[in-house]
Every structure is written in structure tokens, then in C-alpha cells.
């Protein structure tokens, strides 16, 4: 088990409810595969440094999750699949903090 920092950018068109359910889906991808959410932080709606899919802004969400390698692959697969996720980044927590 390793702890990873997951950051993803959600599409700005989402309302609070839509965003909450998206975050919930992502978190479920972790917990359903034996992982654990250690920290959850909404970094808020921010302006993107450059447009992504024509969007100029996005909702930044930060998660810390402890999970095994297969669970990580599944999480990443789902993040890639989701239309509402503009970008994501997963790094080992020990590299950042």
C-alpha cells in the first residue's frame, strides 16, 4: 500500500451537485478496490494557465489515497474515461510532501 496524491480538474460547467457526485464517483473507484481516502480537498474553481478543451477554468480537486497498484490502475482508467475530468495527475505522496 502506498499513498498517492491525486489531482484532477473537473469541467467548469458542473454545478455543486454535479461536482460532488463526480468526486464521489472518483472516491468510490478508490474505496471499491480496497483503497482508502486519506484526505480530500476542494481547491476550488481556478483559471487554467492555458485552455484545455476550450475551457478556460476548472474545478480543482485534490485527494490523498492509499491503495495498491491494481486499484491505482483502475482509478487512473476511470479518470481517463470520465468526460468531466479535463486533466488528472497522480504522484506518489512521498515525492511531494
Amino acid at each position: 500500500m502506498r499513498t498517492y496524491e491525486v489531482v484532477f480538474i473537473a469541467q467548469p460547467g458542473l454545478d455543486d451537485e454535479g461536482l460532488a457526485s463526480l468526486v464521489e464517483t472518483v472516491k468510490r473507484a478508490v474505496t471499491e478496490n480496497g483503497g482508502e481516502i486519506v484526505k480530500e480537498e476542494m481547491m476550488g474553481r481556478r483559471k487554467l494557465a492555458y485552455p484545455i478543451r476550450r475551457y478556460e477554468e476548472g474545478h480543482y480537486v485534490l485527494l490523498h489515497a492509499s491503495l495498491e497498484r491494481p486499484a491505482l490502475n483502475e482509478l487512473e482508467r476511470r479518470l481517463k474515461l470520465s468526460e468531466d475530468v479535463l486533466r488528472h495527475l497522480i504522484v506518489r505522496l512521498d515525492e511531494v510532501a
Binding site: 494557465a49 492555458y50 484545455i52 480543482y60 495527475l89
Partner: peptide, 13 residues
């Protein structure tokens, strides 16, 4: 990568 910083100046709005 997560658009916190630009790749180039032409990226600016």
C-alpha cells in the same frame, strides 16, 4: 500538466 503554469507565453488568455 495540470495547467497551474503555462507551457509558453502564447498560452496566456
Amino acid at each position: 500538466h495540470i495547467a497551474l503554469l503555462p507551457f509558453t507565453a502564447s498560452h496566456t488568455h
